[in-house]
Design a protein around this nucleic acid. Structure first.
Length: 281
DNA sequence: ATCCAGGAAAACG
DNA sequence: CGTTTTCATGGA
């Protein structure tokens, strides 16, 4: 079993990183082992202090996926601007923003709207099981995430995946992306705001989903997704004069993400994920 | 049962 | 333009 030894100056927590809710395809097994599908790999991975044991993918792939190249110590210093975020950093230290497969991340966050995390996980697993390709690692079986074409050309239009009203969004977006071979490079090359507008032209992708996709798959670390949890946290601790009961309007979304970008700086997406990871309730 | 969840789009005024 | 309603599913 290959291992990676982490430098003591670069904090990493496998549990925080995979358990914080940014990704939906990892399962916590026995003895600290995690199992997940990433691209065409089934990966098994476990952390013991600074030692990472893994199988199922090359070391380079693991290092890239978990963003071991991020200077996390410096990033956390750069967002540590008040006691509240400081406590969240203490609680979730070692959480890293991972580099998710882009198409899967796009579909995942279309499926995430107005749903809780266990429900989202089941939807993604069902889509993969139904339309993905079977892959194996020793005695473990998993399913790769289907390509845009596979979903766009599914005879049943993703019926039976229990996506509710999101089913049509995924199906239509799959059709659009199938015809746009260079969409990943195109979005990657755009600055954050332009990429955001472009993603929001896709059916089922609004401000929040676009921000999640940009943060979790396109390395746009200035993105600050505002969901019901983050909204509550920001209003209770930073923007106390805002109305907390009415539905979130576009203008309030803009106020919150604008404040966060200003307050936490260019890595406010990291701040967002630490606040989300430390949420209670 | 009732309310809520990593919301978005259509309808409305 | 900004606000309200509707949408389908499952957790708690």
């Amino acid at each position: 079993m290959p291992t990676i030894t982490l430098s003591s100056s670069q904090p990493f927590s496998l549990d925080q990183t995979l358990g914080c809710g940014q990704v939906f395809r990892w399962d916590h097994a026995e003895n600290g082992w995690w199992t997940g599908v990433v691209g065409n790999h089934i990966i098994r991975i476990r952390q013991d202090g600074s030692r990472i044991a893994y199988e199922g993918a090359p070391e380079k792939f693991i290092r890239h996926y978990f963003s071991f190249d991020h200077d996390l110590e410096s990033i956390l210093d750069s967002i540590d601007h008040d006691p509240f975020i400081h406590a969240a950093i203490d609680q979730c230290r070692g959480l890293r923003l991972i580099r998710q497969p882009k198409w899967e991340c796009l579909v995942s966050y279309i499926c995430s709207t107005n749903s809780n995390i266990p429900t989202i996980r089941r939807r993604i697993a069902t889509i993969a099981g139904q339309y993905g390709r079977e892959i194996r690692l020793n005695n473990i079986t998993g399913y790769s995430f289907p390509e845009p074409f596979d979903l766009a050309c599914s005879p049943d239009g993703l019926d039976g995946c229990k996506l509710g009203y999101r089913c049509d969004y995924v199906y239509k977006t799959a059709g659009i992306i199938t015809d746009r071979k260079k969409w990943e490079k195109s979005i990657t090359a755009m600055p954050y705001e332009a990429a955001r507008k472009e993603l929001m032209t896709l059916p089922g992708v609004g401000p929040k989903a676009a921000d999640c996709i940009l943060l979790f798959a396109f390395e746009k670390h200035e993105s600050f997704p505002v969901d019901v949890w983050i909204r509550r946290i920001m209003q209770q601790n930073y923007l106390k004069s805002m109305n907390t009961t009415a539905p979130l309007t576009h203008r309030e979304y803009e106020t919150i993400r604008g404040f966060a970008r200003e307050h936490f700086g260019e890595y406010c997406g990291y701040a967002q994920e630490y606040l989300f990871g430390a949420r209670t309730g």
